[in-house]
Simulated assay, not measured.
Amino acid sequence: MSFTLYGAAGSGSVPVEAAMTLIGLDYRVIEAVTWEGEAERDKVAVANPMRQVPTLVLPNGEVLTESAAILIWLADAYPEARLGPGIDDPRRARFLRWITFIPASIYSMFWVRDEPSRLVGDDPAAQDEVKRRTLGRIAECWRVMDSQITPGRFLLGDELSVLDLYVAVASRWTPRRARFTAEAPRMAEVVRRVDALPALQGFWAERFPFGADEAV
Score class of each variant (00 low, 15 high):
106 I>S: 10
78 Y>P: 02
36 E>R: 14
168 A>E: 13
180 F>P: 14
9 A>Y: 07
97 R>A: 06
136 G>C: 04
27 Y>L: 04
167 V>Q: 12
201 Q>G: 04
33 V>N: 11
85 P>M: 01
95 F>K: 04
120 V>R: 05
93 A>H: 14
196 A>M: 04
132 R>V: 01
54 P>Q: 01
47 A>I: 04
170 A>D: 12
71 L>K: 06
3 F>P: 05
177 R>F: 15
141 C>D: 06
18 A>E: 11
32 A>S: 05
104 A>M: 12
186 R>V: 06
141 C>N: 12
40 E>Y: 01
192 R>S: 13
67 S>F: 03
214 E>N: 07
182 A>F: 09
63 V>T: 12
172 R>H: 14
186 R>D: 14
176 R>E: 14
191 V>G: 11
209 P>N: 05
157 G>M: 02
43 K>F: 00
128 D>S: 07
153 R>V: 00
90 P>E: 08
160 L>T: 02
150 T>S: 13
170 A>W: 15
1 M>W: 07
74 L>Q: 01
147 S>A: 14
81 A>W: 02
66 E>W: 08
95 F>A: 03
26 D>N: 13
205 A>G: 10
26 D>K: 09
107 Y>H: 15
75 A>L: 02
36 E>N: 11
84 G>W: 04
189 E>A: 15
210 F>P: 08
151 P>K: 03
211 G>A: 10
183 E>D: 15
136 G>M: 08
28 R>L: 06
208 F>W: 10
140 E>S: 09
178 A>G: 14
171 S>H: 10
164 D>K: 06
71 L>D: 02
25 L>S: 06
85 P>S: 01
181 T>R: 15
208 F>T: 02
82 R>I: 00
32 A>F: 05
172 R>C: 12
71 L>P: 08
145 M>F: 11
82 R>W: 00
179 R>V: 15
151 P>A: 02
88 D>R: 11
155 L>S: 11
38 E>Y: 00
193 R>M: 03
4 T>E: 14
61 G>A: 03
119 L>Q: 03
165 L>S: 09
167 V>E: 10
